[in-house]
């Protein structure tokens, strides 16, 4: 029997974006204030889980047609690539580069290759969490 959970579905639609943007914020701010790829990834997954709870797995899959396994692979490759890249220009493995740039719209910003690595962590965490939850949820 399908209950009429319109309130929860409506709330979820809004709260999803709040959590999602918060997670992006946490991820971006990680280098200077608490946060980072790991927590950011977990929060993003919890936002998706909220959708799963309000609707169901298949609906979420149609809304977010992501293969989470690919996400894991992309994350790992990104992390490894960031770490390995300096070796090609004669620097030790895992050398990071950073500098300050003035970008249009945002203004003076610091850009750091560590963020690419953190993005890899973020993707892996989202991928793994969602793989686990999806699989266990589907299993009967």
């Amino acid at each position: 029997m399908k209950t009429n959970d319109v309130i929860i579905q409506f709330t979820a639609k809004i709260v999803f974006f709040i959590i999602f943007f918060f997670s992006i914020h946490i991820f971006m701010a990680g280098h200077y204030t608490p946060g980072g790829g790991f927590v950011g990834g977990l929060l993003t997954s919890s936002a998706i889980v909220l959708l799963v709870l309000a609707y169901d797995l298949n609906t979420v899959r149609t809304v977010l047609p992501i293969n989470y396994i690919h996400l894991i692979a992309t994350g790992l490759l990104l992390a490894l690539g960031t770490a390995a890249f300096p070796m090609f220009i004669g620097k030790p493995f895992f050398t990071h580069f950073f500098d300050y740039f003035t970008l249009p719209l945002i203004g003076k910003t610091s850009l750091h290759t560590a963020m690419l690595f953190d993005a890899g962590v973020y993707l892996v965490v989202v991928g793994v969490t969602m793989t686990i939850i999806q699989r266990i949820g589907e299993d009967d």
Binding site: H31, Y32, T33, G35, G37, A83, H96, A114, D118
Partner: peptide, 18 residues
């Protein structure tokens, strides 16, 4: 050296990213 402010995160992704 690391261009960051959050020591925990910088250790995680930079000093000891391995």
């Amino acid at each position: 050296l690391a261009g960051g402010g959050n020591i925990v995160n910088v250790i995680l992704v930079d000093y000891r990213g391995f």
